[in-house]
């Protein structure tokens, strides 16, 4: 870790001013310090934003709830109202890393975290994501990589909150150039789909302020599969949310993590599910649609059947929580 300066910001505007140039926002610090320790990024100034007012609250509205970007993952996990209203969000939060990390990790940091591709994270490989001219993973060790991508980099998004937020059709409110910008989860990661250098669509100085979650989908569920039983990254994660009206799905959304640079969503599948009664056959057909265009590589093809199983299970879990 190189030497840096440090400042504590007390307003979003001053935070933005401080961070301009070669600064970085410091919230939970899990991702940032990890990147700095491996010299993967450099920052001359760390701007502690943890005392920014108003961003550490969970607010309940009738049409949507607002979660401040400084709310910790542990806060979400422990919040009884969230567990009741958005069970999938509770489940996703509980699967994030470990207790020690959840205690400091923030919603904003979880969404903005960088790739976990082991070539990107390696201090001595200069891959596409680090402005090199080669994706080592594509013909190398790609067991944890994407089934879908819009560019030559195959590192997937790993934020489990992004997966569940996508299924809940949540919106991130981002402070950009002094103005609040609203971004869907798809928009929040779109740039990573297109540009190998990008981890998300945020530019330097952009600050996630909060996330708004519509309350319309009263059912939600999240599942992830990993090599281990705890404290392990998802090989695939899956979230689903919907209303169930007269036994039929209304406005269903399915999203997957760790298989694409963006939360993987297939509109055709959502449309297919809309109005359907959930059963094994419906879930299977939806899974087929969602994975139809997967482009498995040498070592990650197992993610196709794995994702298929998770989609089916997550969807059926929606039904189970009637």
């Amino acid at each position: 870790m190189k030497a840096f300066q440090y400042a504590t910001a007390h307003s979003a505007d001053s935070a933005r001013e401080l961070v301009a140039g070669k600064g970085a926002y410091l919230a939970g610090g899990n991702d940032l310090l990890g990147l700095l320790k491996e010299y993967l990024i450099s920052a001359d100034l760390l701007v502690n934003i943890k005392s920014l007012p108003g961003l550490n609250k969970i607010e309940h509205g009738r049409k949507f709830w607002t979660i401040g970007s400084l709310v910790t993952v542990a806060q979400i996990e422990d919040d009884a109202d969230i567990k009741k209203t958005f069970p999938g969000l509770h489940e996703a939060a509980a699967e994030v890393a470990s207790q020690q990390i959840r205690n400091v990790a923030t919603v904003g940091g979880n969404l903005a975290q960088h790739s976990r591709c082991w070539y990107f994270r390696h201090r001595d490989t200069v891959c596409l994501k680090k402005d090199g001219d080669l994706c080592y993973a594509r013909n190398g060790e790609n067991r944890y990589h994407s089934l879908f991508t819009g560019n030559t980099c195959i590192s997937p998004v790993v934020s489990s909150l992004a997966t569940i937020f996508a299924s809940l059709e949540a919106t991130a409110i981002v402070l950009r150039d002094g103005k609040e910008t609203r971004m869907s989860m798809a928009e929040l990661y779109q740039r990573a789909w297109e540009n190998p250098l990008a981890h998300n669509s945020l530019s330097n100085g952009d600050l996630i302020l909060r996330v708004e979650i519509p309350t319309a989908r009263t059912r939600s569920a999240y599942l992830q599969a990993s090599d281990k039983h705890a404290f392990d990254w998802a090989l695939v994660s899956c979230a689903a949310a919907a209303e169930i009206v007269d036994g039929k799905l209304k406005s269903p959304r399915v999203a997957l993590g760790s298989i694409s640079p963006v939360p993987h969503q297939v509109e055709a599948a959502n449309q297919f599910l809309d109005g359907k009664v959930l059963d094994e056959a419906t879930a299977t057909q939806a899974a087929d649609l969602i994975l139809k265009d997967a482009k498995p590589l040498e070592h990650n093809a197992y993610k196709v059947p794995l994702a298929h199983a998770l989609i089916r299970r997550t969807l059926l879990k929606l039904k189970g929580e009637a």
Binding site: D227, L235, P305
Partner: peptide, 18 residues
């Protein structure tokens, strides 16, 4: 690993040429 279990069970599709 899960990847090897799924492969042993014959569930894993072939890779698509990069």
């Amino acid at each position: 690993t899960p990847a090897k279990i799924l492969a042993a069970l014959g569930k894993v599709p072939p890779a698509v040429a990069a």
